[in-house]
Amino acid sequence: MMNAFVFTLVGLGLFFSLLRLLTGPTPFDRVLSLDTMNIIISGSIVLIALIFNNALYLDIAIVYAVLAFLETIVFARYLEGRS
């Protein structure tokens, strides 16, 4: 029951950043919303670990957070160099 409330709020956050990802006027806005979505997703992977009671998902969350950071930096550097 409480999980439903938590996931509704998480889903709202994901939904609004997805809207920005689809409508964002510049590539930077899209990368920024992708970054926000990645952080929200790694938080929800931890929630899934709690619900399934399986600590293996925590390792997935760590790797996901590392890759999300690298992705943001690489995209920022690439877009900066292109213009």
Partner: peptide, 10 residues
Amino acid sequence: FYAIGGLGIY
């Protein structure tokens, strides 16, 4: 706060 963050981005 995740929802606030998404709404702020939008």
